[in-house]
Amino acid sequence: MFEFFPGDHVRSSSVNLALMAGGSLADIGRWLGPLRDTPEAGLDAWAAAWAGMAHQQEALAAGDVRAGYLAAAGRRYLRASVYHATAQRQIPPGPTKSESYAASLQAFGNAMDCGALPLVRVHVDSPDGTLPGYLIAPDAADPRPVVIVYGGLDLTKEMLYATVGAAFARRGITCLVIDTPGTGELIRLRGVPSRPDYEVPTAAIIDHLQARHDVDARHVAVLGVSFGGYYAARSAAFEPRVSACVSWAGSWDCGALWRRRWDEAEAEPTSWFLPWVTGTGTIEEALERLELWTLADVWPRVTQPLLIVHGENDREIPVADARRAFEAAGSADKRLHVFAAAGGGAEHIQSDDPAPALDLIAEWLSLRMPVLPEPPVPALA
């Protein structure tokens, strides 16, 4: 993996995620370069560098707006949204995190106001309250199948959009990026933690889709990114209306995985994170609650077409977990694709080379999701 901060996997992975979502290496080099020479610099310096990067893009975008260059302004605002979102990822809950997240939402809204993002806002009623999201629709006269995209433990719908863009729409599939329990607005603005039974929000989302006239909700796939792979698999196992499942990083037993990472001190730099996402008070309570996030007995219930995409050198979820998941899955139509280091994309969610993985996922789904209207059933004589 490209390590902007040599030997610092946590900060380097955040850089790669920002690049994956459309960030500029030139911007990152200018604003984060000084931090490489000051390893003692803390979270305040980290947040300030990303904020400066974002504010610069916003100032340039404002100039584009004054000149009438709305498409250019929209792209800059979207990049600023990514930078603000990256600033808050490693910051514990508090004023700095809240300000960075609010700034990310504002910049994304500015991009939408410029008409640069072909999105439709949606609000889904659910047992956890309203779930906000964006529909990315193909340019088609008729309703198309839908893929619901779930982020992992720290992605937002805005970052998801910046990552997947129009990859599915180009192939005739409507895409829904959405904040759900433990992610985005729900955890940051309303304090709604994650939940192990993710079929509950998935059912609410499909109910909403079935009530719409601009999508074909007879065919709804789920795609989970990173630990969202758990959400996708769990949804497919217990929500029969899911027609296909993609785990972009194959999950097996999140509780056991995080227990190991904590015991080996891998998770200590973000010790606040697990209690925050799980709605618990201490790290030990969080680890105990995470024992419910296991797919060991769930994968056999997944019978829909299944794709698991993983990296050979994944340092977040071991590739062995993806192989166990693949073997246990009950799907007759299933594929495991492991990106190897020699060809690129070997890191977690292929953050070192994401385009081939996204193309693979979109192409695989397009072959399993009917994109043409089905003929009407003839009436009985």
Rank of each mutant, 00 (worst) to 15 (best):
G22C: 10
S98R: 13
V246H: 06
G255E: 07
F168V: 01
P95A: 08
E266T: 02
T156F: 04
V246L: 09
L209V: 09
A328M: 12
R259Y: 08
Y161D: 07
V215L: 03
A221R: 08
L131E: 03
D142G: 08
D64T: 06
I173D: 02
T303P: 06
R195C: 14
I148N: 03
E268M: 08
A232S: 13
A137P: 09
Y150S: 09
V65R: 15
A111M: 05
G345H: 00
V200N: 15
R241S: 02
Y230L: 03
F227T: 09
Q210L: 07
A236Q: 04
P92W: 04
R144C: 05
V65Q: 15
S81E: 00
R121P: 15
S100H: 11
A236M: 08
R234D: 00
Y77Q: 12
D253H: 06
W293I: 10
R36F: 03
L176Y: 00
I205C: 03
P376E: 02
I187Q: 15
Y101R: 01
S13Q: 09
P145H: 02
Q88P: 07
V122M: 01
R234S: 13
P269I: 01
A80H: 04
R212S: 10
F4Y: 02
D125M: 04
L372Q: 13
I349K: 11
A346F: 12
G330A: 04
A256F: 10
A116N: 15
A111C: 07
G23T: 03
V309K: 12
A249P: 13
L105W: 06
T278R: 08
V65H: 15
R30M: 06
M20S: 11
P318W: 09
L274I: 14
S100R: 15
A21K: 02
T174A: 02
I361Y: 01
A111K: 10
P378Y: 07
S247D: 11
I283L: 15
R289I: 01
A286R: 06
E288F: 15
A59F: 07
N16H: 01
W364T: 00
